[in-house]
Computed example of a mutant assay.
Amino acid sequence: MEIKIEKLDLKIIFRAFLREQKAFLFPVVLILLQLFILFLIDVKSDIFIYTSILNISLLLVFFLIRFLFFYKRVNKFIYILNNLEFDNHFDKHDFSLIENIALLKLQKLLRNAQKADAQHRELILEQEEYFMLWLHQIKTPIAAMDLLLQKNKTGDDFQMRKALLSIDSYTQMALHYLKLQTKNSDLDFAEFSIDTALQNIFRKYRCFFIYKNIVLNYKPVNLSIITDSILFETMIEQIISNALKYSCLNQKAPEITVFVENTNSIVIKDNGTGISASDLPKVFDKGYCGQNGKNMQKATGIGLYLAKKIADSINCKIEIKSKLGYGTTVRVKMKK
Rank of each mutant, 00 (worst) to 15 (best):
I5D: 10
L8M: 13
F14P: 06
F14M: 11
F14D: 07
Q21G: 04
I31R: 08
Q34A: 12
F36R: 05
F39N: 15
F48K: 11
F48Q: 09
Y50F: 14
I53K: 11
L54W: 05
L54M: 11
N55S: 09
I56A: 14
I56D: 08
I56T: 14
L58C: 11
L58N: 11
L64S: 13
F70I: 00
F70D: 01
Y71C: 03
N75C: 03
N75Q: 11
N75A: 05
F77I: 00
N82F: 02
L84C: 02
L84E: 01
E85K: 15
E85N: 15
E85I: 01
D87T: 12
D87R: 10
N88G: 06
S96E: 06
L109P: 00
L109T: 01
N112E: 10
A113S: 04
K115P: 00
D117M: 02
E128W: 02
Y130C: 00
Q137W: 03
P141C: 02
L149Y: 04
D156A: 09
A163N: 13
L165R: 14
S166F: 13
S166A: 15
Q172R: 12
M173Y: 12
M173T: 08
H176V: 11
K179F: 11
S185M: 12
F189G: 05
F189W: 10
A190H: 12
S193I: 03
A197D: 05
K204Y: 08
I210M: 09
I210K: 13
V215R: 14
L216Y: 02
L216W: 02
Y218D: 04
K219D: 11
P220A: 14
P220R: 08
V221C: 10
I225W: 01
T227N: 14
E233P: 06
T234S: 13
E237I: 01
Q238I: 01
C248T: 13
K252M: 05
K252Y: 07
I256V: 03
V258E: 00
V260E: 00
V267A: 00
I268A: 06
K269S: 10
K269A: 06
D270A: 02
T273C: 10
P281Q: 07
V283Y: 08
D285R: 08
Q291H: 09
Q291K: 07
K298N: 12
T300C: 08
T300S: 12
G303I: 00
L304T: 02
Y305R: 02
L306C: 02
I310C: 04
C316T: 06
K317P: 07
I318S: 09
E319T: 13
E319K: 14
L324V: 06
V330Q: 09
